[in-house]
């Protein structure tokens, strides 16, 4: 089977229970929204291949259960992630406050150079809003992380969020690739088994140029 993509990116969605992680992913992978509440059991994933600046980029997106008791099990999926979306619910103050805890979780469990993005979801529910857009932006500035308000229901900024995160990761990978490999390789379908035996500390040095 020939490789059908140029890059494989692994993304992870985290945040409190009920903020809409699964709905965001469902919107992105199936372009649909389902009002019924089916909570994520442990961990799940979806795959979508996108076209990014002329490259086929395969996204393997991991969705996690927000409930505290799943924390130990889900953190095993942090380490291999190249990008993490931190999701809160703009109608739920507590979920916003907990973003700091989720960031601490990333610092403890993910690779140091993981790309991050904060998503304030359910921005269509303006009458129930508890967290202003400005506060979201302020938090993002504080942590130097990109931020966007989304609505999985109205399909607002969901594509934008995934494409932005994917583009940032891809740019970082290409930069790293150039730095370590001044002579540009064409094709770049050269990942060999022996290259994989290194134990790098970051995902950048094991980036998937497949």
């Amino acid at each position: 089977m020939a490789k059908t993509y140029d890059y494989l990116l692994k993304l992870l969605l985290i945040g409190d229970s009920g903020v809409g992680k699964t709905s965001i992913l469902f919107r992105f992978s199936e372009d649909a929204f389902n009002i019924s509440f089916i909570s994520t059991i442990g961990i799940d994933f979806k795959i979508r291949t996108i076209d990014l600046d002329g490259k086929k980029v395969k996204l393997q997106i991991w969705d996690t259960a927000g409930q505290e008791r799943f924390r130990t099990i889900t953190t095993a999926y942090y380490r291999g992630s190249m990008g993490i979306m931190l999701v809160y619910d703009v109608t739920n103050e507590k979920s916003f406050e907990n973003i700091k805890n989720w960031i601490r979780n990333i610092e403890e469990n993910a690779s140091a150079d993981v790309e991050k993005m904060i998503l304030g979801n359910k921005c269509d529910l303006d009458s129930k809003r508890q967290v202003s857009k400005e506060r979201g932006e302020q938090l993002a500035i504080e942590y130097q992380i990109k931020f966007v308000e989304t609505s999985a229901k109205d399909s607002l900024n969901v594509e934008y969020a995934f494409f932005t995160l994917a583009r940032d990761i891809k740019a970082k990978m290409e930069k790293k690739q150039e730095a370590s490999n001044p002579t540009p390789r064409s094709g770049a379908h050269q990942l060999r088994a022996n290259e994989q035996q290194r134990k790098p500390t970051s995902w950048l040095s094991r980036c998937n140029l497949l």
Binding site: L8, F45, A76, R79, G80, R198, W203, R206
Partner: peptide, 13 residues
């Protein structure tokens, strides 16, 4: 898997 040591056991999910 890329890098080794970061991929959780495959059957787990």
């Amino acid at each position: 898997s890329d890098g080794g040591g970061v991929e959780p056991p495959l059957p787990d999910v």
